[in-house]
Design a protein around this nucleic acid. Structure first.
Lengths: 347, 347
DNA sequence: ACCGATTCTGCAAACGATTGCAGGGTTTCA
DNA sequence: TGAAACCCTGCAATCGTTTGCAGAATCGGT
């Protein structure tokens, strides 16, 4: 039923080799023959069988992507970028969801290995040793996790956090809570790294948690943060921040009048919350595309390919952050010295 | 580098045929040999090359899924079900996103056809003629779109709407706005079908729109609905309903005191909104799983397989719906006659 | 018209698995 | 001990491509 290269060859009156070459290596075949073959192939609706081709070339033309959890909007966003970039490079995409399970993830890479030319791991949940063992099974690119000598795409979360800190400092905040996500996660580490700037800006930070990186986690965290008497709350991600917003509303704490709230990710809902959430936006789609670029490079053996692609984060200022009451009761410039003094504090 | 069946055969001191059979047809080979082969295979870490197998068997062991837009949370939810069910049935999953474009979608099916045993189309955006032409290229299962003689999984959206109508009627609402989504979409049609029950329940419905099925669409629609002096607003989906909620809050219209709001889909945010949104929940994951079941059945040629799998929707009552002011000013039982009269009105 | 140099084209061997068929062993029974 | 019956195992063909190699066709120049 499906039309093979044999069919095209017979129909065109040439050998299969000629058909193969006419389609893949145009300069090796006479122009007239080429045209004839191509025309015949189109007329018959011939599409090469990738499996058969892969058997001999050793390349499958497939990429694999493994994500921890499709119901976390973070990952479909990346996936979308992977998708379109892969299509552009003429690769098909295998998808797998490992349910936040590192062992499962490792198993999936093994299972995929034979069917793909390379795999993209999003926020891998593998333990370092699992990861170490997995590297080498197939070409691998990591997103948001960094391993020595392995190509990675990382989002400059620490940089994003620094923007957030500067923003809060500029508004005059001096006492801020950070609501941690999963303690071991790379993302959480990076956020904390960025937080170190707070000292230099004269901001005292109190770290709470870890909390579940969810709406419910935010509900939970909000009360604890409030008890610390801070003027601003930075949440691990937007989902948590939305939870915080919701809980504060219930307690009649006004945002941003009484306390400022800040999230990470810029998920679609962030802009729709009341008040719209100030947050650190990530370039999900770009990350996906970059990962494909890196992987394709790696596969084609161009060792000259770069190993590390860092994507900027961008603070999106919306209505959930403002000057704290304390700062607003005095002239605005009164807060300036605090910032200028800061270097002295830091050193 | 990768270990082939040849390697296993050599190592185990048997022929490749024996290895193949030891792994695939246990009863055809002596128990002792089988054990030895299996042990060797495991020791060497042998995994059959699916492409090679597919060449001869004609089966690839792969499934394809095409979705209109990964950034719509509706689809990742389905995808998650597809994923896990496919894994259970030992199929790998190809994913493609057609960017809401029917032509692209058709092209993707063609491109996938050779590499998969079947394809699942979620809320296909193809025109009827495109779809007609695509059927037959490969085994096909549709989700949320119904075509004669084609296996489909559909969500009983009309039934869900009827639950919504009954709920509003029971609360005493008599004048309701429905905010339409994309007019041509199957989902919108189904919702309108379910709305027909309103007449029999003594409810007057005014249909507005179409609007974009997004938060912004909801912002837009809210004012129009308010102008119609209704006591309840039913939105095409939750995203729109959230927009409505947001706009009403801005206008100081209290929900549910002044007006009730109701959505569709039960996206994660629905329960986190203020007030939490009453909505019609769909069984996304189940839909994905069911589609895989149908497809696997179809592939294995068991024509006895069912053709149509209908999934119930379930109204989730939260805090965004309540009795209208009009009904609340009189004793609650006063609204009962309206409902009992209803059949007469309907006939 | 012939020769060498160039271009094209076809043959056949891979790639890694599955499977029909036939042959080799072992067992069973006479 | 021999033959029939059975159970295992191996040979070899096959799936649809690509590609090294060799042979055929074309061409230009004399």
């Amino acid at each position: 039923m499906p039309v093979t290269i044999q069919d095209v060859a017979r129909e065109a009156g040439v050998s299969v080799s000629t058909v193969s070459r006419a389609l893949a290596a145009p300069q090796m075949v006479r122009e007239a023959t080429r045209l004839h073959v191509v025309e015949t192939a189109n007329r018959l609706g011939y599409r090469p069988n990738r499996a058969a081709r892969g058997l001999i070339t050793g390349k499958t033309g497939n990429l694999g992507v493994i994500v921890p959890d499709l119901s976390n909007p973070f990952f479909p966003a990346i996936l979308k970028g992977v998708q379109s970039q892969a299509r552009g490079a003429d690769y098909a995409v295998f998808l797998a969801d490992c349910d936040e399970n590192g062992a499962e993830e490792a198993a999936l890479v093994q299972a995929m290995a034979k069917q793909v030319d390379g795999v993209i791991l999003c926020s891998s949940r593998m333990s370092p040793s699992q990861l170490e063992r997995t590297i080498g099974t197939t070409a691998l690119v990591l997103i948001n996790r960094s391993v020595r000598d392995q190509p990675v795409v990382i989002m400059d979360v620490a940089g994003g956090m620094r923007q957030a800190v500067d923003h809060l400092a500029a508004l005059g905040h001096r006492h801020v809570a950070y609501l941690q996500g999963p303690r071991a996660s790379w993302s959480n580490q990076q956020r904390r790294r960025g937080l170190r700037r707070a000292g230099r800006r004269g901001i005292r930070v109190i770290e709470l948690g870890p909390f579940a990186p969810t709406f419910e986690g935010g509900l939970h965290a909000a009360d604890l943060a409030l008890a610390e008497d801070v003027t601003a709350i930075v949440a691990y991600n937007d989902l948590m921040a939305l939870g915080v917003l919701s809980r504060l509303a219930d307690r009649d704490v006004k945002v941003p009048a009484d306390v400022s709230v800040l999230g990470f990710d810029d998920i679609p809902m962030a802009g729709m919350a009341t008040p719209p959430l100030t947050t650190v936006a990530m370039q999900h789609g770009r990350a996906g595309r970059a990962a494909v670029d890196l992987l394709v490079n790696l596969i084609s053996g161009a060792d000259a390919g770069e190993l590390r692609r860092e994507l900027e984060c961008q603070l999106i200022v919306r209505a959930s952050t403002a000057m704290p009451r304390t700062a607003r009761t005095q002239p605005a410039h009164a807060v300036a010295p605090a910032r200028r003094d800061a270097p002295a504090v830091g050193t």
